[in-house]
Write a protein that binds this DNA or RNA. Structure first.
Lengths: 196, 196
DNA sequence: AACTATATGGAACTACGATTCCGCTTGTCA
DNA sequence: TGACAAGCGGAATCGTAGTTCCATATAGTT
């Protein structure tokens, strides 16, 4: 009797070795495919790139949405980790915040699915990454609070403003048109955050 | 022999009276349905709301995309018209520009399809409304030029920046989350446009 | 009033992509 | 090295929504 109680429904159960390996491959493949195609990515492509059958993908993730949610959770965790790092540097808080925004934007720029997630396409994707967003929001809040104390950020800025602004930046990323340059957009936004 | 030469392929040919009436109904219906559902709107719904069969919709617009394109052309023409008005008022140019942005944003706020079009979802929708956007861009340019001369706008702002910024505002509109408030976003953006 | 080119309605057809199913394979454990 | 539960592949299924087709109806004309 080796079956053990799971702490959460999502915990990686004691999967058979090959299954664990496949799960990782699928996630890795999905990362690439969704990054390239956004929500239009197809399950068959994810399977093919991972070198497994679709059935296997579905064994690990019950629906396409569940797969995307897992992917986005990972991304937001990454962002939150970076925010933690930003809090630990001895940089001036506003500069630390700006660095965080730039790094996260850079990541989103290479990933169509992340752009969608940040820009808020799809209610469910948003809802089901709530916890991870919260985490990021809290750390951003702390960064802002410090900058406020230092007087290096515009007085009325809140964390939700940053989220909204980044939503705009990510939205501009997905447009390919002359004059549309998300880095410029981000520069303008950053400049706006400075105290007058 | 009453057949006449058409000036453009799209010109309203001499349709039979009932057909002309239906065409208008379909556009009106489509306006409402796409405003509510965005790109997910269904042709059957457009037809039902217009009180005609789907076949009739397809007689007037060869594809769903063609219908959306027509709708968006009309919207951008509306925006361009407002820009023209803004140029004709005796308001201070920067204020005229801000008024234009607010009115257009307000319109987009009631229309999911317009939000998508402005935020640049769908290559084709973008490409095929090129001419109308151009028109809007030109007038915006003139407004900006006047504000520059008056020194009431940030010196480095270009028309494409405004487009990009509005893309962000429209993107924020489609998100329903605490703290997401496009009017606040727009206020911040407007404030950013002011000279330091 | 008859005639015919235009229009119309809506059932049927299609294409596409997510998801299911099940016979076969492979780790794992005694 | 069996035995068997866990895992796998991928063809087949299913649902959805855009698009087509054609028998029928109607506006405009003589």
């Amino acid at each position: 009797m080796t079956t053990e109680i799971q702490t959460t429904a999502e915990a990686t159960r004691q999967l058979r070795a090959d299954a664990r390996r496949n799960r990782e491959r699928i996630l890795e493949s999905a990362r690439a495919v969704f990054a390239e195609c956004g929500a239009e990515a197809q399950m068959d492509d994810v399977a093919a790139r991972a070198g497994v059958g679709v059935g296997t993908v579905y064994r690990h993730f019950p629906t396409k949405e569940a797969l995307m949610v897992e992917l986005m959770r990972q991304k937001f965790r990454l962002f939150a980790d970076r925010a933690r790092e930003a809090l630990e540097t001895d940089q001036e808080p506003f500069e630390a915040l700006v660095g965080l925004l730039r790094r996260n934007a850079e990541t989103a720029a290479h990933d169509a699915a992340t752009q969608l997630a940040i820009a808020g396409a799809g209610e469910n994707l948003w809802d089901q990454t709530q916890a991870e967003r919260e985490e990021l929001l809290e750390r951003t809040d702390e960064l802002i609070a410090r900058a406020h104390r230092a007087g290096t950020i515009r007085a009325d800025i809140q964390a939700s403003d940053i989220a909204m602004l980044m939503c705009g930046v990510c939205s501009a990323m997905s447009v390919t048109a002359p004059g549309f340059d998300w880095e410029r957009h981000l520069d303008l936004v950053v400049d706006m955050l400075r105290p007058r």
